[in-house]
């Protein structure tokens, strides 16, 4: 493992770092973190087990094992990344390995919202732009500067206009991606809803 883990906190407007490419469609959360590693009551040690089975199969040649990638922070993936189980352990494992942003062709819904909830922005790009990025990062290290203000990514040679859900972009810029405090602010409205919902009037309560 790398230097000590510090979670993202507060406003996220700029992410600069080296890219790591992982090629493949439909990479599911069982592959990102196999189920046996879910037997834990905290997320602390998940980083070292990210892609455990894929890495064992590739015997040191998996992108997450290559020496040149060890300081990478921006993950480049293809389509439907993070499909399958809702386990937040998957983005937690990626984040604890060192990933701070993900750029891909597309993401599964639950994985995407889990990433937002822990402060790891996910951006989308068309297939050919992703392939450009992946080819560049294979040939030599690709460093990107991601600017959340205008959803752009640039390197010395490349420029990309990234797509991100506007609600997510605003939350990262304001630092409210950890939704709890915004939700708590509407306590009165929540209580009104609790008293108004028809079915809560005719249901037995434990």
């Amino acid at each position: 493992m790398k230097s000590e883990f510090t979670p993202p906190i507060g406003k996220i407007s700029q992410i600069n770092g080296q890219c790591i490419s992982l090629v493949g469609n439909d990479i599911d959360t069982d592959r990102i973190i196999p189920a046996r590693f879910l037997k834990c009551v905290n997320f602390d040690s998940l980083g070292e087990s990210v892609f455990e089975d894929d890495r064992k199969t590739l015997k040191g040649q998996h992108p997450f094992d290559l020496e040149e990638n060890k300081n990478a922070t921006i993950l480049i993936v293809n389509s439907n990344f993070g499909c399958g189980s809702s386990r937040e352990h998957a983005p937690q494992a990626l984040m604890r390995w060192g990933i701070r942003a993900i750029i891909g062709e597309s993401f599964a819904d639950i994985f995407y919202s889990n990433c937002i909830a822990i402060g790891v922005p996910c951006f989308t790009l068309p297939k050919n732009s992703i392939q450009d990025m992946q080819n560049h990062s294979f040939n030599k290290c690709l460093f990107l500067e991601i600017d959340m203000n205008n959803s752009s990514a640039k390197s010395k040679e490349l420029n990309f206009d990234l797509e991100i859900k506007e609600s997510a972009r605003k939350m990262f810029l304001s630092g409210e991606w950890d939704a709890t405090s915004a939700l708590l602010e509407n306590e009165k409205l929540i209580e009104n809803k609790f008293h108004d919902l028809p079915y809560l009037k005719f249901n037995n309560q434990f």
Binding site: R87, E88, P91, S113, N114, A117, D178, T180
Partner: peptide
């Protein structure tokens, strides 16, 4: 939902 949303 994920665990952060379970918390919420």
């Amino acid at each position: 939902i994920g665990t952060s949303q379970v918390r919420d």
